[in-house]
Design a protein around this nucleic acid. Structure first.
Lengths: 114, 114
DNA sequence: CAGTATCCAAAGGGATACTG
DNA sequence: CAGTATCCCTTTGGATACTG
């Protein structure tokens, strides 16, 4: 086995983190909707992400918030409403999405050829 | 809620596929090792992917092969050995890896700041 | 409206042992 | 050597009901 340039443990972890961040069943879908509408309430997200249950939606939103990709704002209305919006920082994931989309489209074609 | 350009169902699926493809706990690690060494045997992969069990390694390799990212070659030695190598097509995932790495590194810094 | 609580089924993955 | 077979635990996520 020949030896080329090694990739560091740090880099492996970084990639794993990035993958994990987008791996939830609905996470990408939520993120996409938020990019699209800019600001949405819990119920809006539930309706757009057809099939998601409140428990799961809540969990995924918390994780996205923990990762600083979205913000959660409580509005003093009656009854109280909550708005979710993508952060400025979330723009940093755009290149990842683009790369995933590009490869994903190619790959679907490729696999169909089999 | 304002309306911008919609993303198609097809695109959403493509992205989901791409994410799923890399989501296995060891898949990226295996792919990385194969890029690095070009060709490895089952046992080599097991040793380099510290902690993986043969059952899981076998499964992940099959999935990568199904997705045309690696090839599996049986060598007529005694005892029989098997070589795994990345395909030419596997180069197409490189931009995805790069984007994931780039974001992942930024993200790890960002999260530490919290 | 925006969640939380509970229960449950399926999938992912580890440990260990075995086989051609 | 290159896997398979079995068992089992943890995680993920769906269904349903309930609360401030």
């Amino acid at each position: 086995m020949k030896t080329k340039n090694e990739i560091s443990k740090e880099k492996i972890l970084a990639i794993k983190d990035a993958i994990e961040l987008l791996s939830g069943k609905w996470k990408f879908c939520i993120l996409h909707n938020l990019y699209h509408y800019q600001t949405m309430r819990f119920k809006d997200l539930q309706e757009k992400s057809v099939g998601i249950t409140p428990k799961v939606l809540s969990k995924e939103l918390q994780e996205l918030e923990d990762n600083l990709l979205i913000t959660r704002t409580v509005n003093s209305t009656k009854p109280v409403t909550v708005s979710y919006a993508p952060t400025k920082y979330a723009e940093e994931v755009q290149p990842v999405i683009d790369a995933l989309l590009d490869f994903g489209l190619k790959h679907r074609k490729k696999i169909k050829e089999k």
